[in-house]
């Protein structure tokens, strides 16, 4: 389209600019727009390649607001790369990635994405080893994150009880003053889930939450994740089929960087393509 055409298109006489009309623009740019019935995450045609190897290949996937979604797939299917793309750690070669209707995640920094409301629990639990469990949650707390604010801020009673509530929720109230480096592997996993919760995210990305946990711990983690869905949207990446069956409503199977199948656990398990990928190789 020539410049003249686009100018005409912009200044069409039969319409009024959106911002001139009262009440039409409910969301300003930079704000999350993921109301009821809309999707919270839009991944479209995402391709990521590392030295010619396509970790993600035209991946298209949507996550509904308030949904609990499980993602499975064999090693190298692109699960972690997908998480990296969403959190801004890896930039896709092509494709779009939107958080709500307005936020283009491929243009935001990791920090901006975290602030916008996406929390991530890593595959390998990464907590701050020399801070206590309490301090770990305090650091993750949803609050202004500027330097001067941090220097002068003092914790309010409200914030303190919020941290304690979260500690209780992840079962670490008794270990609140223990240095995180000394916690057991399962406890670290929970502490990290707690940290993600303290960020008050709209979308939680949980990478292999039950690795290294005992049966009881697994059960509690499942309950915790289920209780989070609804208020938050949760994406869980996991290998453990039994665990996924116990919590999932919708399952997405990734294979070689794109979606192989999507549906309930039963549908997915009976899908011939999935069976071939999991059993045929």
């Amino acid at each position: 389209m020539s410049a003249l055409d686009s100018l005409r298109e912009t200044f069409r006489r039969d319409q009024v600019f959106d911002f001139m009309r009262q009440g039409t623009r409910s969301v300003s740019p930079g704000q999350l727009d993921a109301g009821d019935g809309k999707n919270i995450l839009y991944l479209e045609d995402i391709t990521v390649s590392f030295d010619g190897f396509k970790a993600l290949n035209d991946l298209t996937m949507y996550i509904k607001t308030g949904e609990l979604r499980c993602i499975i797939g064999p090693n190298g299917a692109g699960k972690s790369t997908m998480m990296d793309v969403i959190t801004g750690k890896t930039r896709p070669d092509s494709g779009t990635c939107f958080f709500g209707q307005t936020l283009d995640l491929t243009r935001l920094s990791e920090t901006d994405i975290a602030t916008a409301g996406i929390g991530r629990k890593f595959q390998k639990p990464t907590v701050f080893p020399e801070h206590t469990a309490f301090e770990n949650l305090e650091l993750a707390m949803h609050d202004a994150k500027g330097t001067w604010h941090s220097l002068f801020t003092r914790m309010s009673g409200e914030q303190k009880s919020w941290i304690e509530e979260t500690l209780a929720q992840v079962g670490l109230l008794e270990d609140r003053d223990k240095v995180a480096g000394l916690l057991s592997h399962g406890q670290k996993q929970w502490l990290e889930i707690g940290m993600v919760l303290m960020q008050k995210p709209q979308l939680l990305l949980v990478d292999e939450p039950i690795a290294g946990m005992t049966r009881q711990e697994v059960e509690r983690t499942g309950q915790l994740l289920q209780s989070l869905a609804g208020k938050h949207s949760v994406v869980v990446v996991e290998h453990d089929m039994e665990f996924i069956r116990s919590i999932a409503s919708t399952v997405t199977v990734l294979h070689q960087g794109s979606v192989l199948a999507e549906g309930t656990m039963d549908q997915v398990q009976n899908d011939p393509k999935v069976i071939e990928v999991y059993l045929g190789e």
Partner: peptide, 30 residues
């Protein structure tokens, strides 16, 4: 400085910088 929240963030940056970034701190500013 080290006893304030800023001090704890700085320590967090030292121990796990990318984690600090993922919970919303601009580590380069700190």
């Amino acid at each position: 400085i080290t006893g304030s929240k800023l001090g704890r963030v700085v320590l967090a940056v030292r121990d796990a910088e990318s984690r600090a970034r993922f919970i919303g701190y601009r580590t380069e500013h700190y």
